[in-house]
Amino acid sequence: MKIRKKGKGEPEIPNASMSDVAFLLLIFFLVTTIFNVEKGLDIVLPNLGTSPKRIAKQNLCEIKIAASGRVTVDGVETAVRGLEDVIRRRLIENDKTICVIETHPASYYGIMVDVLDELKLAEATKITLRTGGGG
C-alpha cells in the first residue's frame, strides 16, 4: 500500500536551469577558443630594380652569423642575447646605422631570426639580409 503510485501531478523536467546550462556552455566555448593570431618579424627585401648602394663604412654595422652559429658584430664576437644592447648603443652613437645580417648558408634559420629579433628590440629600422660564405 505504501508504494502505491501517485495518481495526480504530471512528471515534469525542470527547465528553469536549462538557460544557465546553455549560457555556461556558451561562455566556456567563448573563453577556451584560441584564435590563431599569427605574429612575425617583418622586413622589406630589396627588389630587382634596386641597385646596390655604397654605404659609408662608419654607418655600417655588420653582423655575421658563422656556420657554427657564432655571431660577430664588426668582427667582435657577441652573445645573441647581448646584441640588443650593442645595437642600441650603436644607434645612439649614429642613428644612420644600417645593420647588415650576413648569414652563412650552412647556418640555421632560427639563429637569423634570433638576431633579427634582437635588432627589432633595439628599434633598428634599417636592416638588410645577406647570404654570406659560399652563397
Partner: peptide, 18 residues
C-alpha cells in the same frame, strides 16, 4: 619555417621572391 632549417633554403626562397 622551422628554426632548424638551413639558411641556404631560406636564402633561395627569398631570392625567388625578389
Amino acid at each position: 619555417a622551422d628554426k632548424k632549417v638551413s639558411y641556404k633554403i631560406m636564402s633561395d626562397v627569398m631570392e625567388e621572391l625578389k
